Computed example of a mutant assay.
Amino acid sequence: MAKSDTHYFYVLECKDGTYYGGYTTDVARREAEHNAGIRCKYTRNRRPVRVIHSECFETRSEATKAEAAFKKLLRKDKDLYLQKNKGGDMR
């Protein structure tokens, strides 16, 4: 398995309207895994999910810090963050 030099913080919107923030090196693969019910209890019963935001980072540390910061936000602040960063990578 090749090591990726690209690290992503991504946000999913679940069927029930909730958000899930995560880290990956491959956003498309990870979205497919979530929709298949693989490796994430939170999204398993909230499928289908779709990627609504992604940001690219040079290091895993930077991406996981962005993920942790997002997860600490209140819902209204998550909405503002996503609105403000609407032009994000999105794969």
Rank of each mutant, 00 (worst) to 15 (best):
H34I: 06
R60Q: 14
K78W: 02
L74V: 04
C40T: 12
D77H: 14
R60I: 06
Y8H: 13
D16L: 09
R50V: 13
D5Y: 09
Y81N: 01
D79I: 15
T59S: 15
E67Y: 07
D5A: 14
S61N: 11
K65M: 08
Q83H: 08
S54K: 08
G22A: 09
T43Y: 03
A68Y: 11
R75P: 11
T43H: 08
T59L: 04
C14A: 12
L80V: 05
G88H: 14
Y81F: 15
K71G: 11
H53Q: 06
G17H: 10
A69L: 08
T43P: 10
H53P: 01
E55H: 13
K76A: 08
K76T: 05
D77I: 09
K84N: 13
S54I: 04
K3P: 08
A32F: 07
Y20V: 11
H53C: 11
F9G: 02
D26H: 09
D79R: 05
V11N: 01
T43L: 04
R50C: 12
L73S: 00
Y42I: 03
N85R: 13
A28H: 05
E67F: 09
F9Y: 04
E58W: 03
Q83L: 11
A63H: 02
T64W: 04
E31T: 12
E33G: 02
D79V: 12
Y10P: 01
G22S: 06
H34E: 09
Q83N: 08
N35A: 05
T18P: 00
N45Q: 10
G17S: 09
N45T: 14
E13P: 01
F9S: 09
Y20N: 04
G22N: 01
I38C: 02
V27A: 13
G88C: 12
K65F: 00
F57L: 03
L73D: 00
K15W: 04
A63I: 08
D26R: 10
R47N: 07
G22Q: 02
A36R: 11
T24Y: 10
A69M: 09
A32D: 07
G17L: 09
D26N: 15
R47Y: 03
V11I: 15
D26E: 10
T64E: 06
T25Q: 11
K3D: 07
T64I: 15
E58G: 15
L73M: 15
E55M: 11
A2F: 10
M90D: 12
L12I: 02
V49Y: 00
A68I: 05
C56K: 14
R60A: 12
G17Q: 12
K72I: 08
V11Q: 00
A2N: 10
E62V: 00
T43I: 05
Y23N: 03
H34M: 08
L82P: 00
R60Y: 02
D77Q: 14
G87F: 06
I52S: 02
I38G: 00
K78V: 02
D26M: 04
L82H: 02
D16M: 06
C40R: 11
R29C: 02
Y8E: 07
F57D: 01
T59D: 14
G37D: 13
R50Q: 13
F57Y: 15
V49G: 01
E55K: 15
G88Q: 13
A66K: 12
A2Y: 09
R47M: 05
K84L: 14
E33W: 11
M90E: 09
Y10G: 01
L12Y: 03
L12T: 01
M90T: 07
R30C: 05
